[in-house]
Write a protein that binds this DNA or RNA. Structure first.
Lengths: 330, 330
DNA sequence: CTGTTAGCGCTTTCAA
DNA sequence: TTGAAAGCGCTAACAG
């Protein structure tokens, strides 16, 4: 509506003080005589002045914005992470700039280097193998990474995927399952950790593991691979899916193929997305605490920004959630 | 790693040309002799120079960032909107700054006024009644709004909620349902439109409508209200839910109460979230094309930013999606 | 083709 | 308590 938004200068003029005075007063850097402060307040109100955050940022070097890079925002795991991160950011007066790399590792570098110039720090979920991530440590901005890193000196927040997988497998073993299969997603770094946990548990029991692999961590892939898993010669009596989405897809397709979950096959997943509770049968899963992970990552990042020392790795304990998709064998 | 990031000045010095030349070359505003261009390229590479977008923004007034305000990012309707918006933004080299107002209308104004200073334009979903939205039109930034507006001169993108609701109701009528109920969410502006569509259809047939109301558009609310809906004296034989989330919650609870969907009661929702297809029975719904809405809103906003004339209202046609949660009465 | 010169709106010494 | 002045890193006329 106004031609040009009012600037500090306008406020200064209107209140008959210097521009520096207004700046300091607004930022609470300094107090002034009540006369002056009142005049400034009046001018601000009168002009409808709003500070220009860009100009401020250029000087202070702070943008009050945190970047968050996720692999697919429609995946409930990531929208929960965003929720948690967002909440903490809000509590500190910060905004969140989200980028969705759409499961495309090639985009990541450009996108993140770009992002790094517009934010005070970033939180990133990546599909890159650690050896292709060197550049991340060179980005000159505080960064918190999801997942554990062997070499790279980056602070991280990770769920205990190995432990969670072990737990899940143990649960299946105790239920009496003997032919366990894993429907994995090898492009993910977490896949091998989960596989490791499963193998460790199964190895101790001398049980074999059949592994399938999906091209994307989606319901559609769960559906697509279902028939090849359950209509083979020696089908598994329990299936561990890389995530809940795949498990949901699998269960739906199994039902239409006339295979009953959990009677014919027990199914489990990872993440504990809300929808797992609403399908039939409800899905047994490992709660990786997505929202809390997002919040923890943000808190950690803020600590880094403040210059505090933080642990390299924040581990978040997973929790097994038992539901009807798993059933004892007799 | 470096003390101070290299600036344009450093590049200019290193390549023995003026700072203006470098600026123009980088922005492709102008071409120079290959000698000069080569020198600049070398200097940039050597120093690892990256343009400071903040400084640039301050001058150009453009941030290359679009703000998107949603009511709850974990609601698949909104994460799909974000997905669509994000995709279009990316195609144009823009970022998306997301804010989640958490279904809290009181936060909206502050959050949006704040956001408006950091972006080139914004797309907003709001729970505010139109009469409390006047300030939005005063924000001095291009803005596209979700939903239709009677008075406010804001460009909008809306699904045809009235039409969608009519469709859905018509479908139920043709299936032979006589006792139709609506589980609404009156805080939403779209609620009345849907209610209107339902009423119009039912009125024509001389059928009554019972209305229930939820406090939040969530699965939990669907669950919570289920018993009071189906265990009353004269329970409905069909229920239209404000959205799919509520329908999912309702169906789960109905099952545990021993009421069968669709045998005892048909259930339908709005949005066509992906999960509706994976529950049992699969949910009949109206596809509001969330992702496309996000994309359309972004496209429209970009047009506004470019200064083009745009229609006030972009209407997106809903599509009925028939699944097993609705069944003919006999 | 290339360079000079003003600033953008704000913060921040440093003086008064 | 206040203000003057020097920029932050960059773009945009305007000259040459």
């Amino acid at each position: 509506m106004k031609k040009t938004a009012p600037t500090l200068r306008d406020v200064a003029a209107a209140s008959n003080v210097s521009i520096a005075t207004v700046s300091k007063y607004i930022n609470g850097t300094q107090r002034f005589s009540s006369k002056v402060e009142a005049a400034i307040d009046a001018a601000i109100a009168g002009l409808g002045y709003k500070s220009n955050p860009l100009a401020k940022s250029m000087i202070t070097g702070r943008t009050d914005t945190i970047g968050l890079s996720v692999l697919d925002i429609t995946n409930p795991h990531f929208s929960s992470i965003l929720k948690g991160a967002q909440r903490v950011a809000n509590d500190h007066g910060l905004s969140v700039l989200v980028v969705d790399t759409e499961e495309n590792p090639n985009r990541e570098r450009r996108v993140l280097e770009d992002l790094s110039r517009r934010v005070d720090g970033m939180i990133v979920a990546s599909r890159l193998p650690e050896k292709d991530m060197g550049w991340m440590a060179d980005i000159d901005k505080p960064l918190v990474f999801f997942g554990s890193l062997a070499e790279l000196p980056l602070p991280t927040v990770a769920s205990d995927d190995h432990g969670g997988a072990f737990m899940l497998t143990q649960h299946l073993r105790m239920l009496g399952h003997k032919r366990i299969a894993y429907l994995g997603f090898s492009k993910s770094r977490r896949d091998e950790e989960r596989l490791g946990g499963i193998r460790e548990c199964l190895g101790a029991a001398g049980l074999p593991l059949v592994v399938f692999n999906a091209d994307s961590p989606s319901m559609l892939e769960g559906e697509r691979l279902c028939s090849s898993i359950i209509l083979g010669a020696n089908p598994p009596d329990a299936l561990i899916c890389y995530n809940d989405l795949m498990a949901l897809g699998f269960m739906k397709e199994a039902a239409s193929l006339g295979v009953s979950v959990p009677r014919d096959i027990s199914v489990v997943g990872f993440d504990n997305i809300p929808y797992g509770k609403y399908v039939t049968p409800a899905l047994t899963t490992v709660d990786l605490q997505s929202e809390r992970m997002g919040a923890s990552a943000m808190e950690k990042l803020l600590a880094v920004i403040r210059g505090e020392d933080v642990d390299k790795l924040t581990k978040i304990a997973p929790q097994l959630v038992l539901r009807a998709s798993t059933q004892p064998r007799t």
